[in-house]
């Protein structure tokens, strides 16, 4: 699923990495616990989270993730966006809640990458 499709489905605003909207994402993961995210590698993944701190971006970077979506309109700091740019990660914010956002992506065919 292209990142621009994720943006449209989640009614999200892109905060950085607009130049990578045509990149493909193969799986998704929704969690506020970064160690759970780090437990299973998912290739070219998107991370949906309600947690807002620099560790979210670093976790995504360690996992070579393509994109991070903050749910419930949460806004990352400038420092976090700078780190995301440096790591080549697209960052968005969506007004949806976690359950809704995950459900929409899943029902549109984006799996967890572990099935």
């Amino acid at each position: 699923m292209k990142i621009e499709i994720i943006r449209d489905l989640l009614n999200a605003d892109v905060l950085c990495g607009e130049d990578r909207l045509l990149n493909d994402v193969l799986s998704a993961c929704g969690s506020d616990m970064m160690s759970d995210v780090l437990a299973y590698v998912k290739n070219q993944a998107v991370l949906l989270t309600g947690l807002v701190n620099s560790q979210v971006i670093r976790t995504a970077a360690m996992m070579d993730m393509e994109c991070v979506v903050f749910v419930r309109s949460k806004m990352p700091s400038e420092e976090m966006l700078a780190l995301a740019k440096e790591c080549g990660i697209t960052v968005m914010t969506s007004p949806m809640r976690m359950y809704e956002a995950c459900g929409i992506l899943y029902s549109e065919g984006l799996g967890s990458g572990t099935e």
């Binding site: 616990m33 970064m34 160690s35 759970d36 780090l38 437990a39 560790q55 979210v56």
Partner: peptide, 17 residues
């Protein structure tokens, strides 16, 4: 620490993994 996204008891197991 859990409020910051860590402390789920996955750190050492992940390092081993």
């Amino acid at each position: 620490v859990r409020g910051l996204g860590f402390g789920a008891g996955m750190g050492l197991p992940n390092m081993k993994r």
